[in-house]
Design a protein around this nucleic acid. Structure first.
Lengths: 196, 196
DNA sequence: GATTTTCTTGAACGGATATTCTAGAATAAC
DNA sequence: GTTATTCTAGAATATCCGTTCAAGAAAATC
C-alpha cells in the first residue's frame, strides 16, 4: 500500500556517512547530503527526520558496517596479535589517500565540547576496547602476548594509540613514522620471551 | 594620531581562543565571539580581518601562551621524566571539569578533512614532539630513561598517546583509567635498570 | 581647541542554513 | 480501474551566518 522507495537505504546511509567522515557534522549541509546521496531534501526529511537523526543513523551504520567490518577483515577472532597489528596498519592505508577519517574520533572531538558525548562514540570506543581486550587475552593464553601485562590495561593503551594515530593522520603526519611506531609497539607486546 | 583601543588585545584573543577550544571553528559564530569577547562585530572585523584570521590569531596565541606555558609550568628544561609525567597528568585535571579541549587536537580533526592541515596545528605538534625528544634525550644522558630506546621514536609514541588521551577525555572516558595508563607508561620508560 | 586619524557602533546585506509544506508521481491493495 | 497510501520534488520560509558600511565617538598631534 503506497509508493515504494526508489533508492537503497543502505547505499544512501553510506554516502551520507562518507560525507560526515570527511567534513564533520557541522561541515556537511543538507545541500551536501543531497549531492552525496542523490536524494532531494524532501525525501531526506521524510525518510530520516532531520539532520541530527540522519547523522545518528549514518553513525550507527559506521559502527555496524565500517568498524565491525574492518575488525572482521583484519583482526577476526583467533587472529591474535597479527590481527591487531594488521588492524592498526590498515589505518595508514586508506584507499588513494582519501583520508575519510574515523567517525568515532571525529565525533568525539567535534561533539564532545558541549554536553555528553554521542551515544555511537561511546559504543564505538567500547567495541574497539573489547576487541583489543579479547584478542590480547586469547593471545596471552597461547603465549603470544607478554604474560606480565594485563589485557585490560594494554587494551586501553592500544585504544589511546589508535585514537592518537587517527588524529596525527588527519593532521598530515608522515605515515612511515607511524608505521614504525605500530611495528615497534607490537614487537614489544609480543616479546613474551622478554629477556629478564 | 587616532583613537586608542579600549580593550586588551591579549584578553580578547584569550576569550576567543576559549570559545574555539570549546566549540570548534565552525561551532563558533561571530555572535558567539561578540559575547565571549565583549567586542562588537565591527571592532572584530576592524581589528582582526575576518573570522578565519581571528581564529588564526587565537590559535597562534594558544601555541604561544597555553601550550608553551603548560610545558614551561609542568615540564621545563631539565625537569626530565618527572616533568613529562606531570605534563601528561595535567591533561586530566582541567580546572572544574571545563573540558576546554586542546586546540591542536581539535583543529587537526575538524580542519584536517579538507585541504592541508592548519599551520598552527603542524607547529603545535612540532613543539610537543621536540619538547618530548629533548626531555627524553637529556634524561637518557642522566640514566633516567632506558638506554635501549631512541628519544625520537619514543617522542612520537608520546605524541600519539598525548593526542589519543585528549580524544578520550573529550569522549568522556574515565579519567582514573587514563591516569593509570600514564603512570604505567612512564614507569616502563624509566625502567633503565630493566631486568635483562 | 582644531584637525586628523583611529576606533566603535549597529544597522544593513546577501547568501546559506535547516526545515516545512504543498502538489504531483508511483505503487500496493481491493 | 479505482482508491488509499506512500514517496518524491522543489518551491517557500524563517532564521542565522559572515561581512560590509556609514556615521559618530574618542584620542593623539599640532
Amino acid at each position: 500500500m503506497g509508493r515504494t522507495r526508489s533508492y537503497d537505504e543502505g547505499a544512501v546511509l553510506s554516502s551520507a556517512m562518507h560525507a560526515f567522515r570527511r567534513k564533520g557534522y557541522r561541515g556537511v549541509s543538507i545541500r551536501d547530503l543531497e549531492d552525496a546521496t542523490g536524494l532531494k531534501v524532501g525525501s531526506i526529511y521524510n525518510s530520516f527526520g532531520d539532520k541530527a537523526a540522519f547523522f545518528d543513523a549514518a553513525f550507527a551504520r559506521y559502527n555496524r558496517i565500517v568498524l565491525r567490518g574492518r575488525i572482521e577483515r583484519f583482526a577476526p577472532a583467533e587472529s591474535g596479535m597479527d590481527g591487531l597489528r594488521a588492524l592498526f596498519a590498515s589505518l595508514l592505508h586508506e584507499p588513494n589517500d582519501e583520508s575519510l577519517g574515523c567517525l568515532i574520533t571525529n565525533s568525539a572531538v567535534e561533539l564532545g565540547g558541549e554536553g555528553p558525548p554521542h551515544r555511537c562514540t561511546v559504543e564505538g570506543l567500547r567495541i574497539l576496547k573489547e576487541t583489543f581486550t579479547e584478542r590480547l587475552a586469547s593471545s596471552q593464553r597461547r603465549g603470544k602476548f607478554r604474560s606480565d601485562k594485563s589485557p585490560e590495561s594494554t587494551a586501553l593503551r592500544l585504544l589511546t594509540l589508535y585514537q592518537g594515530i587517527l588524529v596525527l593522520v588527519r593532521a598530515g603526519h608522515d605515515k612511515r613514522a607511524l608505521e614504525v611506531l605500530i611495528q615497534d609497539e607490537f614487537n614489544s607486546l609480543e616479546a613474551s620471551h622478554d629477556p629478564r
